[in-house]
């Protein structure tokens, strides 16, 4: 180390090579290890534990569930898998209804998001370049303010004596207040409102990258604007549509705050069911079983999303 750096100090043969490789290898390990260990310990392991506890029985103890493995007569290690929680899920119509209802509500909310988000993303992507960043910032800005408060704002608007009803009555469109709050409609509005940025941003990213001369080429080859949109723009923006839809659909399925605050007593969603099971009934094993079942439901869309993300990264 005492040779002047930058001058060709002789490397002592292959020990030098080994040192260089070892130094690099150790450095890499030090970089990989902290995030890897953290995510394994605080993200991967918890899911294993959820899976484990979903096979346990509820007891009044700390922790409030039975162990899965136990020593029998100090000789045999016994594994007790209790399927009761899953059987209960299938048996009780409530859970199945909540499941299907979650999918329905999330799907409708995703479709509404796409319907509103696509033209918005399109308009931003075709706006003058100087304005695009500003317009995008405006899409993202609400996302930075409290989610809870934004949902709360809708309570004041959608209530029976809320701003929307007051306004509609004042201009004479209706004379009886519309019951919107505590219905599925309020949930749709809340979901679309909260997740719209997640739809617009990926759509914008694909639409902005699109080569506009493709549309000119289509027009030159005799394609009318609407057909050109259907045949060129739409297929090319498919990655954005898929990514945006997944980003809206997946968290919507598990959403708790919006159905709790805006939905009614009959707005059954799986996230709310889990919350009640855990906090009200304190049945941890059943709550875990609900979580596992929800994960199973979401595996397919999550995989689709992951594959899209990786595809988008590979060309680099």
């Amino acid at each position: 180390m005492n040779g002047r750096p930058g001058n060709g100090r002789p490397a002592n043969g292959w020990t030098g090579a080994v040192r260089w490789v070892v130094a690099g290898g150790l450095g890499r390990l030090l970089v990989v290890l902290p995030p890897y260990a953290w995510l394994t310990l605080f993200f991967l392991v918890p899911f294993v534990i959820v899976l484990k506890i979903s096979f346990a029985e509820m007891v009044s103890a700390i922790p409030p569930y039975t162990p899965l493995v136990a020593w029998v007569e100090d000789v045999y290690l016994q594994l007790r898998l209790n399927m009761a929680n899953y059987i209960f899920l299938l048996d009780d119509g409530l859970y199945l209804t909540a499941y299907l209802n979650s999918i329905k509500i999330a799907a409708i909310a995703t479709a509404l998001c796409l319907l509103l988000g696509y033209p918005m993303a399109y308009a931003i992507a075709r706006a003058p370049e100087a304005r695009r960043n500003g317009l995008l910032l405006l899409i993202m800005l609400p996302f930075w303010t409290s989610f809870l408060i934004r949902v709360y704002a809708w309570i004041g608007i959608l209530k029976d004596e809320g701003l929307l009803n007051n306004f509609l009555i004042a201009i004479g469109v209706i004379d009886q207040p519309l019951a919107i709050l505590h219905t599925d409609w309020a949930v749709y509005i809340g979901l679309v409102y909260s997740y719209l940025p997640f739809m617009v941003l990926p759509l914008y990213a694909t639409l902005e990258k699109m080569d506009l001369t493709l549309l000119e080429a289509a027009a030159d080859l005799g394609c009318r604007p609407l057909r050109a949109f259907l045949l060129v723009t739409l297929p090319l923006s498919m990655p954005g549509i898929v990514a945006g839809s997944m980003l809206v659909f997946i968290p919507s399925v598990g959403e708790f705050v919006i159905p709790d605050l805006l939905g009614g007593p009959d707005t059954l969603m799986i996230g709310k069911v889990l919350w009640v099971e855990f906090f009200t009934n304190r049945d941890w094993p059943l709550a875990s079983a609900v979580a596992v079942a929800m994960l199973v439901l979401l595996v397919a869309p999550i995989l689709v999303f992951q594959r899209h993300r990786q595809n988008a990264e590979e060309p680099e």
């Binding site: 990989v32 995510l39 993200f43 534990i49 968290p251 996230g271 979580a291 999550i302 999303f305």
Partner: peptide
């Protein structure tokens, strides 16, 4: 696995993450 671990929290419903982390 690392890529999956990094991206999964992006889409995981919070309620599942919350429950899993507490149980851990």
């Amino acid at each position: 696995l690392f890529l999956a671990l990094v991206t999964a929290p992006l889409v995981m419903p919070e309620i599942i993450t919350g429950l899993a982390t507490l149980l851990m």
